[in-house]
Design a protein around this nucleic acid. Structure first.
Lengths: 298, 298
DNA sequence: TTTGTTCATATCTTAAATATATTTCTACCC
DNA sequence: GGGTAGAAATATATTTAAGATATGAACAAA
């Protein structure tokens, strides 16, 4: 049995006349009769009763009719679905992001805009460290990740730079310097630093250390905060100071004050990484939308 | 697109290797590649990514896979359904019966046995007069009817005799003859008869009249009972006597006594009628079962 | 580099779908 | 009752396309 047989069956079932049905499907009457006969033989029962003037459905034919319609519809549907999937309108996208990148306005904005444009994409979000995100991307567990990139593209990945932002000093509100309008990095030379683990974002971590050294001092490393969000809490209880991307200053915690950095300070870069040679249309659509979003906001 | 394409697609999707898939479906690798390419062209997107050692599903292919499986399953299912319908295992049966035939043990027994044997037949029951039943059978509104047949087959129908049963006299319990062990028809010569309308069952009606005449009297026609069941009630209130098929004596109504007929009495014949030239397997199965049931009970 | 594996391409063969011509059946009409 | 028209079946021819065979190209692994 082929879809052709089903198509011919439907024509005869709807016309109840072999000659007209043959015209309708664009073949001659004898070949149509043959195809219907073949179908009936395969099923093992006649589908039509041939009458001197036309034909009528047997009980088998009556039962077969709705099934045949459903099969044709399903076949069309399957084709349409596959095409939509190829266009990236259908499927899933497993997205990773670091705790700090979630506060960069571009990230939630791009995700929101993508969801609106492709509502049938099954989108899942996974927060993790930059290092872990890249591992999971490489392992095929994630499709695109927002990371704090190093200067060089990690091999095997394609990174799309989403720009850089200044960093600000975060210090306890009780600290003598908390009222300053801006502070140079050197002002922190004697303060213990509350930082995230280096593996969480090596380039951001190294950038901060480098900025300290550039300002002429070696930072005193104090408490380690597992999450960027818990970092503020550690500062609030006066365990030290820190330097965070300015977008993270959105985390308003009582007892924590953010002060802009004057002079040379570290910068926090943001990038979207995908696998090199990624062919998925969903991922490509997502990257395109993130980049468009980036350009729209200048 | 033909089912062949889907079958080949499934083979490749499951083997993830064109060469093995080709062996599996029993064709060469080049024609298989051609068919897959044709399918991809029709869909408008590639379903596989060809790798140096095998192939993998694209997103379109991943979406198409479950659809393809469903289509194949649906096609098989449709064939099986049609075959079962042709065998009379699937479909509907609209059954008619007269009020009196419902009491003949063969009728409920045959219906019950048929329902057990063919549980997926949608069975509907319709009670009406013999005359009306035959009209509806002829009009195609019913498929088989239990009737009280005349001596000759009504034209256009095929009747299957289900035997005949004796009739009994029904009379008010207060009647002087009610205590008799048996009565000849002639005992009723002076009694008004409570009968059903002649159109309800002409042959049964005429049989009763003929039996009276044979016994030497013209029956006095009294009240008309629209239903065989209401007949007993009319007798109970002493509106007259009647003669009913002995099976109808199952209707035990206070005030009504049934007395066997001695000597020549009318007989009630029962038959199953279908359209002449009926091809429906369901109807044929039903007739066969009714006849088998009749013979089983001797 | 070589070898083996895999898929694609090219060409040919064959099977099957379709076209054309004709026959058969039957209802309908004169 | 014989003739006619409409419809499907049969018979044969043709053409399309599925499949076979042979070969080439790409790539991975040794």
């Amino acid at each position: 049995m082929e879809l052709r047989h089903i198509k011919y069956f439907l024509a005869v079932a709807e016309e109840l006349n072999f000659t007209r049905a043959a015209r309708r499907v664009g073949i001659g009457q004898p070949p149509l009769s043959n195809q219907i006969r073949d179908l009936e033989e395969e099923i093992g029962a006649p589908l039509f009763r041939r009458l001197p003037h036309g034909a009528e459905l047997t009980e088998a034919g009556q039962v077969f009719l709705p099934e045949a319609r459903a099969i044709m519809a399903k076949a069309e549907h399957a084709k349409a679905l596959a095409l939509r999937a190829a266009r990236g309108e259908l499927g899933r996208l497993r997205l990773g992001f670091t705790g700090s990148s979630a506060f960069s306005p571009i990230v939630p904005s791009a995700v929101r805009s993508f969801r609106r444009a492709y509502p049938e994409i099954d989108l899942t979000l996974h927060e993790a460290y930059t290092t872990l995100l890249l591992e999971r991307l490489d392992a095929g567990e994630l499709d695109a990740v927002f990371i704090r990139p190093g200067r060089a593209d990690p091999p095997g990945f394609r990174t799309h730079s989403l720009g850089e932002e200044a960093m600000v000093i975060a210090l306890p509100s009780s600290h003598p310097l908390a009222d300053a309008a801006a502070l140079p990095m050197s002002a922190l030379s004697a303060e213990p630093f509350v930082l995230f683990p280096r593996e969480a974002g090596p380039s951001l971590f190294d950038g901060i250390i480098a900025a300290c050294r550039h300002a002429g001092f070696e930072p005193i490393l104090g408490q380690i905060a597992p999450q960027i969000t818990s970092l503020a809490n550690l500062i609030a209880v006066e365990l030290g100071v820190s330097v965070v991307p300015s977008a993270v200053a959105q985390i308003r915690v009582p007892g924590v004050t953010y002060v802009p950095i004057s002079g040379d300070g570290p910068v926090a870069r943001l990038a979207l990484a995908t696998r090199r040679g990624e062919r998925s249309a969903v991922v490509q659509n997502f990257v395109a939308r993130v980049l468009a979003d980036r350009n729209n906001r200048g």
